[in-house]
Design a binder for these strands. Structure first.
Lengths: 180, 180
DNA sequence: ACCATAATGTAGCGACCGCTACAATAGAAA
DNA sequence: TTTCTATTGTAGCGGTCGCTACATTATGGT
């Protein structure tokens, strides 16, 4: 094995940062390579194809986002359901997570267009979020599996409404479905 | 004014059909022109730029979807709130409306990436939906403005969850937040 | 020391992108 | 009928796309 093999993790990290800043669906090899301080030639060499690269990059971003979520909100039961939901919505709306939400909507739209890989990783991210969320529900929450799915649906709705400038409507929806 | 001027409505209709079938964000001038039985040259001539064309096409699609919604679900108060929500979700999930939902998610992701025009038309579509929905609420619904926003958030969440293969979770969310 | 081979750079392929310069055409106005 | 101009076709520009052919390098195994 001559020459040093590339630091895959480092390349993924730099490409991930580029995608978080500039978007997923508009990302192309040459800008990605520049961000990772390499060449499109090498990206194809190491990942096989753009499709495989994007799939691996999405896995990487999903792992990273999960880590960030754990860091921002440690797995402790919330005092009550409404506080739980509000904290999470505030977190996802924060500048630290807004880029993830943009990439998330890119994944969703690609999945809706029929991309299997985007649908698979998107579904896995949702299921991971279910678990993450369940660990933060108040201890006495009845039917936690269903509760996290209800909260998740509302959260996704909020993300969509935020994206088209309807944050006020999203706030009213939260207040109505999860009154303080 | 020599020669016949193009039938703008007909061109929009054909391009709209193409976008509903093949996606919005991946649409480019030459395939759009082919669908409309004209040339990219003429599309630019009549619409000024691709950006202006897409903006007008989105207005057209929004109008059309509003018409289709009215046709599918006439403005009569529903017997109860849960039936109202379930009918609407079933409608948006039907084959007739699934293509609109795909385009909708394309609009949302572009809006999230910072496209002003997508955000504006997306917000307008949501507000139109608020009105449409309010006309179908049961007569005795308290605080209809807030209710439609809550239903809208849930509906958008369902659309997102459906897109990534989490329709089961979406169903459970509906059953939990709007129990029969 | 030498060699096999993994890693990399350079250059470019063919396809597509949005858009435009230029010329031709056709029909209304005179 | 002639002229003027809105409309259209043809061809192509400069750019980007994913990807590859080919040559070169550098290093670990022998």
């Amino acid at each position: 094995m001559p020459r040093k093999t590339i630091n895959r993790e480092d390349v993924l990290k730099k490409m991930g940062a580029h995608v978080l800043e500039h978007g997923l669906n508009t990302a192309s090899l040459r800008p990605l390579a520049k961000a990772a301080e390499t060449s499109d030639r090498m990206l194809i060499y190491h990942f096989g194809s753009k499709e495989a690269l994007i799939a691996e990059l999405l896995q990487f971003l999903a792992r990273n986002m999960a880590l960030e979520l754990d860091k921002a909100l440690p797995p402790e039961p919330a005092p009550d359901l409404n506080a739980c939901l509000r904290d999470i919505v505030a977190l996802l709306r924060s500048p630290a997570f807004a880029p993830f939400m943009r990439v998330w909507l890119d994944i969703v739209s690609s999945a809706a267009q029929g991309s299997i890989s985007h649908s698979v990783i998107g579904g896995a991210m949702i299921e991971g979020f279910f678990q993450w969320l369940q660990g933060r529900l108040p201890d006495d929450t009845p039917d936690p599996e269903t509760t996290v799915r209800a909260m998740m649906a509302l959260i996704e709705g909020v993300v969509v409404l935020d994206a088209v400038g309807q944050s006020d409507a999203a706030d009213r929806a939260i207040a109505h479905l999860f009154p303080i």
